[in-house]
């Protein structure tokens, strides 16, 4: 008992010291001041260079597109590793009886499911025009599946289909990058015309990549949910 009390005191001391020290450092970056260096370039020339209205999207897909490829890879890795770690876990828990959700919930889910998918697709297709993009869109799509899992414990998403869609979309992303490398000697360079900013068909390869990311994030998060959900009765 004494030890717990002692540990909490230590914890509070750590909290105070780290907090004061860090705060005294961070205030050197004046809050709200215009500190943009890279940002200025993107804000001033981003629209002419890429043809997309949403500068954040431009940065995510073109200027820092390599990061985004890495980010998609991280998510893919997490899905893969999680599948590897939890593999063989679910078989032991098969015979548990699960309760279905009520009639209202399951019927509503059936109606909502396509609409959520549609909304998610809207978000990632308009990523270069409005806030949003591939990642939020993909997450919205995954919530549709989450709703389905919640409403019907016996609902089933084929892992084979998920891994096929993950694989296809990932390969297409890399191929898009390689086409840029082949045509312009630069990996992930936009090889499509920029179009007129503000219209749906603008921004070069941004919409293409965002559609790919949207599908990929959607299927990976669904895979994560699918893997984790099997264990809800385990603990």
């Amino acid at each position: 008992m004494m030890k717990d009390w002692f540990r909490n005191i230590i914890g509070v001391i750590i909290f105070v010291i780290v907090g004061i020290f860090l705060y005294s450092v961070v205030i050197h970056n004046t809050f709200g001041a215009d500190k943009m260096v890279l940002g200025n370039h993107y804000v001033k020339d981003g629209v002419q260079e890429t043809g997309a209205q949403n500068i954040v999207t431009t940065i995510v897909v073109l200027y820092r597109g390599f990061d985004t490829l890495g980010e998609v890879t991280v998510l893919f890795l997490a899905a893969t590793a999680l599948g590897a770690i939890l593999a063989g876990f679910r078989d032991k828990k098969k015979n548990k009886k699960k309760t279905r959700a009520s009639l209202i919930v399951s019927i509503t889910t059936k109606f909502l499911f396509p609409m959520i998918i549609l909304f998610g697709s809207y978000i990632f297709i308009h990523g270069h025009l409005t806030p949003g993009g591939g990642f939020p869109g993909g997450v919205v799509i995954a919530t549709a599946f989450l709703l389905m899992f919640l409403a019907d414990p016996y609902a089933f998403v084929s892992e084979k289909k998920l891994s096929i869609s993950e694989g296809t979309v990932g390969m297409l992303y890399v191929i898009t990058g390689l086409v840029g490398l082949y045509l312009f000697q630069n990996f992930l360079e936009s090889f499509l015309p920029t179009g007129s900013p503000g219209t749906l068909l603008s921004g070069g390869i941004i919409p293409v990549i965002y559609v790919l990311i949207g599908i990929k994030v959607g299927s990976e998060l669904t895979g994560l949910l699918n893997n984790l959900r099997e264990d809800e009765n385990a603990i």
Binding site: L69, T73, F76, T80, E159, K160, S163, I164, E166, G167, T168, V169, G170, M171, V174, I175, G177, L178, L181, Q185, F187
Partner: peptide, 24 residues
């Protein structure tokens, strides 16, 4: 030969395995 090919090629292979993992 661009060094970025190391990364592109590895990524492509990883997704390729994912595509065929349930088949073979």
């Amino acid at each position: 030969v661009s060094p970025i090919l190391i990364i592109a090629f590895s990524l492509f292979a990883a997704f390729f395995i994912a595509f065929f993992s349930k088949i073979s």
